[in-house]
Amino acid sequence: MNTQQLLKKLTKQLDALREEVIIHDKNLNPWQKKLLQDTERFNNELFIQHGAILFPCITQIHSNICQLEKLIKLKVTKQAIELSCAKIEDRFTAVKRAINSTTTNINIVKQQKANARARYARKSEQAHAETEFDWIASSVMQNSHAIYEELNKHFNWARKIEQKIAKMESNLENCHSTDKIKLQNDILLMHRRLGKCRQAIRYIEDRIQTIERPYQSNNR
């Protein structure tokens, strides 16, 4: 294949890839573009490009082909031309791979953001719990005997609340319609109390683990 045929082949490849990229970019919705706006899709040696839109890559490949044409006119060595062609082919391959992986990249970023939100929610919940149960920390957390007594006390409270809920739900079946709404609200209130009690139990258990961890490490 002579140099003119080579340039014609690369230009034809670029035209076909341009059509694919135009369709790809057109099918992206604003949310997807925003999601990938800070994502690097390529190695910096291949393209200078960020985000979901791939058309800037077409412009850069076009510049590469123009540079190759100049090299041919300067009658550089065959090895230099082959090296330039190899780099252009690498860019073609990279863009095709990026077109096929856009959906995967979107799902990865979505999962990363969801994980970040979940971590933030857990930290917020933990911070809230620590603030809410400060009275436990201030009164019993420095005394290993007292902390287990507090844990047992909350387990007993939780069991009594569960029994009370079960009784109220049993009464609900035979309750007069005029009293049913009030009883349902009372059951809901008891469930909230049970939830708070279980949160306190988890808080105390976490603190027990924190206290006992250094002791366990020293006895290994």
Results as ranks from 00 to 15, higher is better:
K9R: 02
K182N: 15
H128P: 04
L54F: 07
W157L: 05
Q4E: 14
R91N: 14
H191K: 00
H62Q: 11
I72T: 11
K96D: 14
R122Q: 14
K70G: 14
I23V: 12
D206K: 01
M190S: 12
K123Q: 15
R192T: 12
N156S: 08
L14W: 05
H176W: 09
L71T: 10
A129F: 09
A98T: 02
K167Q: 14
Q5A: 10
K70R: 02
L14S: 03
W157A: 06
I147A: 01
Y120N: 08
E19G: 02
A121G: 02
P30L: 04
V109Q: 05
A118C: 06
Q37H: 12
L194N: 10
Q112N: 10
E19A: 07
I211R: 00
N156W: 03
E205C: 01
H176V: 12
R159K: 09
Q126R: 05
L7H: 04
A116Q: 14
E125R: 01
H128W: 12
N43Q: 14
L68S: 02
Q5G: 03
M190Q: 08
Y215A: 13
I81V: 12
W157Q: 03
I181R: 03
L10I: 06
T11I: 03
P56Q: 03
C197L: 00
P30T: 04
I22E: 13
V109Y: 03
L10T: 00
D38R: 05
A121T: 12
K9G: 07
L183P: 01
L36D: 10
I161C: 05
A86G: 09
Q79I: 13
Q13T: 08
Q216A: 15
N115C: 05
N152M: 05
L46V: 11
V109D: 04
I22A: 08
I99W: 07
F47R: 00
